[in-house]
Simulated scan of single mutants.
Amino acid sequence: MNSLPLEYFLRVSELGSITRAALDLHLSQPALSRHIAALEHELGVALFNRTHGGVTLTEAGELLAGRARPILRQLSILKEQVGEQATGLLSIGIPPSWHHVFTEDYAARIISGSPGVKLRIYEGASNVLREYMAAGLLDLAIIPFNPDPTPGYQQTRLVREPAMLVDRREAGLHHAVPAALSRLDGMRLVLPSRPNGLRLQVEHALSRNGHAFKLAAEVDTLALCLTMARKAIAQTVVPSCALCNSDVTAGLSWAPLAGIQLTWTLCENSARTHSLAVREGKRLALELITSRVDAGDWQGAEKLIHAKN
């Protein structure tokens, strides 16, 4: 399980120079060149275009660079899983919209209450987390419910919540008064790019009713979507959980969109259920989500943890 050739390849691709990469890796330039040449020979393709100014990736090199990182990550996890620290590792994927309602408290509780757990948190869009799950990189992941779950993972439904139309404060949206879906007809929206689950729900719901919005921009950063609404540049649609923090909601008004809800699930890697760290991570996640919903500060949230999954 020698990963050094791929690690060396990635460092050269990042720095664009075998000389600079050799210095960074504390290798001689000829030695690093031999490693790269051996990798190219093994793969049967050239990975770099050599120029006087350095190196650039070939088409084959671009493909390898995109695939090498998750491969190295999987190898790292595999080594840890078969090693003595396997039971102490917890890798969890969480969407950015959950940051204030869940992630901050979750990380704090794991760090302070479970010092033997080595915690890795990946915050990313749901489609990215699904890719990480497919690659076996995550022990747990919070993502929208999928009737066709990722192989090797079992789902536990957590909570159902409304989608929120968000605008500047002066727009006068009220969190207790649902907004009709027809209100989005012709509206300029800034939304995450496809295949974001909420984006697809909005598009399909509008299409079924003969409506369509105007896409102002595709933005995969939640904070920027809210900033665009705050500055009256465009409106946005976000999960209710994204609006559970007063700092986030300053200068905004919002209302639940009639007929659009998200069901969130906790996906657990079936190959890691033996791990004490994973079991503790799942227990704490269910406990924290239950307490947040029961506290009533998660608008419109319906707890599903005790429902039949």
Rank of each mutant, 00 (worst) to 15 (best):
residue 182 S to M: 06
residue 90 L to N: 04
residue 149 P to S: 05
residue 2 N to T: 15
residue 105 D to A: 14
residue 266 L to N: 05
residue 83 G to W: 13
residue 274 H to Y: 13
residue 208 R to N: 11
residue 99 H to W: 01
residue 102 F to L: 15
residue 163 A to H: 01
residue 110 I to Q: 05
residue 108 A to D: 12
residue 250 A to K: 02
residue 102 F to K: 03
residue 242 A to S: 14
residue 77 I to T: 02
residue 275 S to G: 02
residue 103 T to P: 01
residue 67 R to Q: 10
residue 150 T to F: 08
residue 143 I to E: 00
residue 131 E to I: 14
residue 174 H to R: 15
residue 160 R to C: 05
residue 194 R to V: 04
residue 49 N to K: 10
residue 168 R to K: 07
residue 98 W to A: 04
residue 198 L to S: 03
residue 245 N to K: 11
residue 146 N to Y: 07
residue 75 L to T: 11
residue 39 L to G: 04
residue 199 R to W: 14
residue 83 G to K: 14
residue 27 L to I: 06
residue 56 T to A: 09
residue 66 G to S: 11
residue 277 A to I: 09
residue 136 G to N: 09
residue 93 G to L: 03
residue 80 E to M: 13
residue 35 H to G: 07
residue 197 G to M: 09
residue 11 R to I: 06
residue 85 Q to E: 14
residue 176 A to R: 11
residue 200 L to V: 09
residue 246 S to L: 04
residue 87 T to H: 12
residue 194 R to P: 05
residue 13 S to M: 09
residue 81 Q to A: 14
residue 298 W to I: 01
residue 299 Q to T: 13
residue 224 L to C: 08
residue 140 L to V: 14
residue 225 C to A: 07
residue 139 D to W: 08
residue 5 P to H: 05
residue 269 N to V: 11
residue 76 S to N: 09
residue 213 F to K: 03
residue 297 D to G: 00
residue 252 L to T: 09
residue 134 A to H: 14
residue 9 F to I: 15
residue 140 L to N: 07
residue 43 L to I: 12
residue 288 L to I: 10
residue 211 H to Y: 06
residue 216 A to R: 08
residue 217 A to Q: 07
residue 14 E to Y: 11
residue 144 P to K: 03
residue 300 G to S: 08
residue 59 E to G: 13
residue 55 V to L: 11
residue 121 I to F: 10
residue 53 G to H: 12
residue 89 L to H: 11
residue 155 Q to P: 00
residue 250 A to I: 03
residue 237 V to A: 01
residue 89 L to Y: 11
residue 279 R to I: 11
residue 44 G to N: 03
residue 120 R to F: 14
residue 24 D to W: 15
residue 165 L to P: 00
residue 248 V to N: 05
residue 5 P to V: 05
residue 92 I to P: 02
residue 60 A to Q: 15
residue 137 L to I: 13
residue 248 V to D: 04
residue 132 Y to W: 12
residue 233 I to F: 02
residue 280 E to G: 12
residue 42 E to Q: 09
residue 297 D to Y: 00
residue 27 L to N: 02
residue 46 A to P: 01
residue 302 E to I: 15
residue 105 D to C: 04
residue 281 G to Y: 06
residue 18 I to E: 13
residue 163 A to P: 01
residue 51 T to G: 09
residue 131 E to K: 15
residue 240 S to P: 01
residue 11 R to T: 12
residue 8 Y to S: 13
residue 287 E to I: 07
residue 204 H to P: 02
residue 194 R to D: 03
